[in-house]
Amino acid sequence: MGEVIVITSGKGGVGKTTTTANLGVALAQLGLKTCLVDADIGLRNLDVVLGLENRIVYDLVDVVEGFCRLKQALIRDKRLDGLSLLPAAQTKDKTAVTPEQMRTVTDELRQEFDYILVDSPAGIEQGFRNAIAGADRALIVATPEVASVRDADRIIGLLEAAEIPPARLIVNRLRPGMVRKGDMMSVDDIVDILAIDLIGVVPEDEQIVVTTNRGEPAAMSRESRAGESYRSIARRVRGEEVPFAEMDEPTGFFGRLRRIFGQA
């Protein structure tokens, strides 16, 4: 029986979809059958981040409305064994699916997959309600900014109220250099304020822009620092103890040298 994990944040633009795509890739690389569900109906995005936009035939709403079977709507990623996508509808809106229908879909996916990652839309309205409906646990994505952490706190409260077990936090787009200079909140600051467990830290990485342009998630390549973080998070998701890498940017000659040799 697979596990359903919702990826959410409250605030938009903090990297939920990028996180979902990369975590999905990283889990599939570990040999785990993984299905990504785009719950952002009307604003479909996960397909383009994954580079699967040209292969969509049916979507989540088609499944719910009975136009096709669930299996027909699933897109298998040909680049990576074990990774599938259930795309959102682009023409409908959030009310096209109810939380009960969402639960039915994720429960069916459990039979087939080890992990089902649900990419939640921003906000706390029905799209969010749908996304969390079938979830066993939640991962919260926050960037080191006041607005993002504030929204994350609200989401944590709503998840508690929905009796979804304590969420774990992904701090995204951290800039260690700025933290050192006192110009950005640190991971500890955020963890301290939100009082939840950390599952990963993803550094700001220009490669994310490049890989997203190409529709090839960063976790697919070995060169991206962010991709490395996602691989660590994937292992923690499945229960491994993975030490948190020092997020300091290498400086100076030896630092650069270390980085060149891939140890940074």
Binding site: E145, V146, V149, R150, D153, R154, G157, V179, K181, G182, D183, M184, M185, S186, D189, I193
Partner: peptide, 19 residues
């Protein structure tokens, strides 16, 4: 004061009211 500390204080403040 460093903007990191300002951010932390503003957050604590706003979250107390939000909660």
């Amino acid at each position: 004061s460093q903007s990191r500390d300002v951010a932390k204080n503003r957050l604590r403040n706003v979250l107390a009211h939000d909660r």
